[in-house]
Design a protein around this nucleic acid. Structure first.
Lengths: 342, 342
DNA sequence: CCGTACTTTCAAAGCGCTTTGGGTGGCGCA
DNA sequence: TGCGCCACCCAAAGCGCTTTGAAAGTACGG
């Protein structure tokens, strides 16, 4: 059933039917009711494609996931972010379009999206320190919200981010307060903006406590289980190794635990661990009692916020960029304890 | 730049330009070349929406992810599946649309997709034993491919699945060959089809070896880390507990390990563990030496296959349903060993 | 040189919707 | 009675593309 058929069976023009259905005022209430009932009865659904063409916007939001050819990892955090955002898209009547693309083709894809009117806006994932996508999108005038930030980027833009500096500062401070002085950090890839900020927070806490941080205790790499394992193993291999580590990802922490187990060290007694916890649905950090002491911020919540912001931006063109800084909660679990006596 | 403008600058009709660009034969080669060059120079991109409207199909494939309100978990496997499928969609010029929806509204969404022509086909995720979506979609005549199977479903349909029965049979046989006789299973939710098949494979191996399986050694639940932990802990709480377990998910296995560590039991010595390994990019099961003995089948590969099949089905309407049964590899790692002497 | 058969190009009619720019007809008011 | 003003509804244009049906141009055999 399409508009034409519906309007014919009703004995009305397409105009009137369209208006009645879309809530325009220039139609009598009685007529509107009649139209709405008929639409329901015949199961009329407007053809989205035609609507888009006529209205000039797509009611679709794009997520482009770059897949680098070197380390073709899909960020596990992604699923939950999408779940959060998708919830809001559905509620607001937007569709979500996902594009998996080699990272070097990402800009090309944005251009295509814009020129073809495929999407009304996009979410940018995993920003780098000086991410070229941001000025590019700003230039394109395609509405976007960044999940994360790009420190070196001058153009103003909208973002949703966790206060990574503060989170890692607090985590490190907490370890220091427990008496630890040799503290390591197992971080994400160093050109990623969040990793940079986290390192910064960690270093700030160390230096303001008068502690020095040995580069041998730092690790930066993709946040996989294996890398967590390797990093921890490597850190342990040096004499006078740290008695505590802060870890950028729950997944890496799983590897960290494995390395510690293997070395016969007990988490929380021999080595304290604080992990960043994105609160993933399939990797909950315990229930009432957290397994790991963690700095927690729900990535699903970030997804919801990003979606809301982007939708607002799309529906209010010309509104200035907004942003949202989420504070991570420091939750104490079983993976931290006083620094062991030498 | 749109078709009209392009055709005007070229001094040709829209018809000719359209045909030249879409590879129709009724246009002189010289003209085609000229058109193609101009299109490239001016960066002409056809408006997808208009194209869809005119052609009557959307070149979009839908994935609808049901999010049950009880346990609102996003399947972690999903990200990698999507990555595999997305790769193929991009290559074939299809878009991927994701919809997050409360599970009870799923059919409504399919109906909408069909009647509005939003998508040309869909992938069905996480089929149940007798999944109502399958007859529903068949009835709707919306092309679809199921990732997994629905045992109790009579309607023929296309699917891509792992040979779950065989995989768990082999895993169990392997444990038996190592001398284990008390073997547990930590499985997914029992109404999920894959869980049912896996249980079946496990039981087949047990009974054909003349072993009995105590229901106290069985667990069925969502495949989270916590549940793996709980299940293992529970299994260990009974006297005469198993000396080996097969686990349906790598994520649950992480919890299993934690429970074993906590109980002071060593994986591969005190308790042998075989896990199903979806070969997730962020949770690789070791590198050259696998951490866990596992039955492995790449979910990303399944994504690729499903996408290919669906695209084929869309482009060759009326072709009979096809399917693809993947055999999981049994790879031996460090988590299995001979049954401990009593 | 004409008729036939291609080849190449075009104008115009959709696809299903929104939206502009009128038309009615009824009412109040002078 | 005549005028203006609403409230309500409509026809038609347009969104940017594809595709049908026809026309113009070209080639070739008779």
């Amino acid at each position: 059933m399409n508009l034409k058929q519906l309007s014919e069976t009703l004995g009305l023009s397409q105009t009137t039917v369209s208006r009645a259905l879309n809530g325009y005022p220039e139609v009598a209430e009685a007529t509107r009711l009649r139209v709405q009932q008929a639409a329901r009865r015949y199961g009329y659904q407007p053809n989205i494609g035609a609507q888009r063409l006529a209205r000039g916007h797509s009611r679709t939001i794009g997520h482009v996931i770059p897949l680098s050819t070197q380390h073709e990892m899909v960020n596990p955090v992604f699923a939950d972010f999408i779940a959060g955002a998708g919830e809001r898209y559905s509620a607001a009547g937007y569709d979500m379009q996902l594009t998996i693309v080699e990272d070097r083709r990402e800009e090309e894809i944005y251009e295509e999206m814009k020129s073809q009117g495929k999407v009304d806006g996009v979410i940018v994932h995993g920003p780098l320190m000086d991410d070229p996508r941001i000025p590019f999108l700003a230039e394109l005038a395609l509405p976007f919200v960044v999940h994360g930030r790009a420190s070196d980027c001058k153009t103003p833009y909208s973002w949703v981010d966790v206060n990574n500096v503060r989170a890692f500062e607090r985590a490190t401070e907490f370890l220091i307060s427990l008496g630890h002085s040799r503290i390591g950090i197992i971080n994400g890839l160093e050109h990623m903006d969040f990793a940079h900020r986290r390192l910064h927070g960690y270093e700030a806490a160390m230096s303001s406590a008068g502690l020095t941080s040995d580069p041998a205790w730092h690790y930066a790499g993709e946040m996989t289980e294996i890398n967590g394992y390797r990093a921890m193993k490597d850190i342990l291999s040096h004499s006078g190794h740290p008695t505590a580590v802060v870890v950028s990802s729950y997944i890496s922490t799983l590897g960290v635990r494995r390395a510690l187990d293997e070395a016969g060290l007990k988490v929380g007694r021999d080595v304290s661990v604080i992990t960043f916890d994105d609160d993933l649905s399939y990797l909950r950090n315990g229930e009432d009692i957290p397994i790991y002491t963690a700095i927690r911020s729900s990535v699903r919540q970030a997804g919801r916020l990003s979606a809301d912001m982007l939708i607002h931006q799309i529906e209010n063109p010309g509104s200035p960029p907004t942003n949202h800084l989420l504070e991570a909660a420091l939750i104490v679990g079983g993976s931290t304890g006083p620094a062991p006596q030498e």
